[in-house]
Simulated scan of single mutants.
Amino acid sequence: MQLVSVAAVAENRAIGSDGEVPWPHIEADVRQYRERVAGSPVILGRRTFDSMRDDLPGARQIVVSRSADAVDVPTAVVADGVDSALDRAAELVGDDDSDDPVYVLGGGAIYELFQPRLDRMVLSHVDGAYEGDTFYPAWDADEWTVAEETAYDRFTLREWVRRAAAA
C-alpha cells in the first residue's frame, strides 16, 4: 500500500482558515482531487470528516479520532491513532505489499501525524500566500523529489516522492 497525502497548499503552507480554504474556489483543483481519491480509502480527522459529510471523498473513510467510538456513515470507520488507521487501511486495500494508494486528507494535525509514514505527497501548490489558521507541515526537501508537475490556472500540481533511504 502507498500512503499518499493530498492537499492544496498556499505558498506559505496555509491550507485552511475557519474550516475553509483561504483562497477563492479553484474548480480545476477540486475536480482533479475528487477524481484522484474517488475509488480509494481515505484517512482524515474527525473535524475534516464532519466538514465533508454532505460530500464524502473516497470509497471508504477512516476517521482518526480519540473521542469517537463510531460514526453514523456506512462507509466510515473510526481509528484511534496512526497505527490503527494504517491497520484499517491495510484491511481495506487487502494486500499490504500492493501499490494501491490510501490517501491522507487532513486536517493539519492529521497531516503532521502521518508525514513520517508518507510514500508520496500530491500537492496543489496554490499561487500566493494566504492568511490561515491551519498549515501543511514542513518537509525536508532532501527527503523528497518532484516526480511529476502539471501547471494549471492558479496552481501547480506536484507529485512528491520520498527518496529511498541511503544504505
Rank of each mutant, 00 (worst) to 15 (best):
M1C: 06
M1S: 13
S5C: 15
V6Y: 01
A7I: 01
A8T: 13
A8E: 10
V9Y: 07
E11I: 10
A14R: 13
G16E: 08
G19W: 01
E20D: 13
E20A: 15
V21F: 05
V21W: 10
P22I: 02
P24G: 08
P24I: 03
E27C: 05
E27T: 12
D29P: 01
R31F: 06
Q32G: 00
Q32Y: 01
Q32K: 10
R34Q: 07
R36S: 12
V37A: 04
G39I: 04
S40Q: 15
V42Y: 00
L44N: 01
G45H: 05
R46H: 07
R47Q: 12
R47D: 08
T48L: 02
F49K: 00
F49Q: 00
F49A: 00
R53C: 03
R53N: 00
R53A: 10
A59Y: 01
R60N: 12
V63A: 04
V64W: 00
V64K: 04
S65E: 04
S67D: 11
V71R: 04
V71Q: 06
V71W: 07
D72Y: 09
D72G: 09
P74D: 15
T75K: 14
D80R: 15
G81S: 11
G81V: 10
D83I: 03
S84I: 00
L86Q: 10
A90N: 09
L92Y: 04
G94D: 12
G94T: 09
D95N: 15
S98M: 07
P101S: 09
V102G: 01
Y103C: 03
L105F: 00
G106K: 01
A109F: 02
A109I: 04
E112I: 05
L113N: 06
R117H: 15
R117Y: 12
L118W: 10
V122I: 14
S124I: 08
H125G: 03
D127N: 14
G128M: 11
G128S: 15
G128C: 11
G128I: 13
Y130M: 05
D133E: 02
P137D: 11
P137M: 11
P137W: 08
A138E: 15
A138R: 14
A141M: 10
A141F: 09
W144N: 14
W144M: 13
T145Y: 01
T145M: 05
A147N: 14
E149N: 12
Y152P: 01
T156A: 09
T156H: 04
T156P: 01
L157I: 04
R158I: 04
E159Y: 07
V161Q: 15
R162A: 05
R163N: 14
A164T: 14
A166F: 11
A167P: 03
